[in-house]
Design a protein around this nucleic acid. Structure first.
Length: 154
DNA sequence: GCCAACGTTGGC
DNA sequence: GCCAACGTTGGC
């Protein structure tokens, strides 16, 4: 079992949007970074824990808990000429972009990035590293435990 | 809107 | 394969 932090712009898909979907599940479309793709394609397993993070918004931070809900499969938006994620070089017989489904479990209080930075135990979190731009980053079991027990406890 | 940081592109 | 230019991310 692994743990991940996945960024979503709430204007595109917030934790509440995800919870409102059938089975509270969304296909994680639109990732166009190879490192992030490789995490989904090669390293994720169904049931992995996910911190649902709101980015590029007024209050960036952890907004909910989720889990990986499918094996990897081709991102359908890469083949859709009408999509902003269209990739003309990707063909159905040779897909370039893979994704997983993510099932939202619950909304949490908003844990701002500044609060994460204030936790010494989280100083090595990939998402907090200087210059980080990855939309999907690994979370260690120890980091997950700190967040779950201290920051997200009722 | 600013800007640091980093990924990608493409000429050579 | 190098590397400058460009584009994107994302917090502030």
């Amino acid at each position: 079992m692994n743990y991940w932090l996945m960024k979503s712009e709430p204007g595109e898909c917030s934790i509440d949007d995800a919870l409102a979907m059938p089975a509270a599940t969304v296909a994680w479309t639109g990732v166009r970074n190879y490192q992030a793709r490789n995490f989904m394609r090669d390293a994720m397993s169904v049931g992995d824990g996910v911190l649902f993070y709101h980015s590029s918004c007024a209050e960036p931070g952890i907004a909910g808990l989720a889990e990986v809900a499918s094996p990897p499969y081709p991102d359908p938006t890469q083949f859709d000429a009408a999509s902003k994620y269209y990739d003309a070089s990707a063909k159905p017989e040779s897909p370039r972009w893979m994704l997983v489904d993510v099932r939202a479990i619950r909304r949490t209080r908003l844990v701002p990035i500044a609060e994460l930075r204030a936790q010494p135990e989280l100083s090595e979190m990939a998402v907090l590293k200087r210059g980080n731009r990855l939309s999907i980053t690994p979370v260690t079991a120890a980091q997950w435990a700190v967040i779950a027990a201290r920051l997200l406890a009722p």
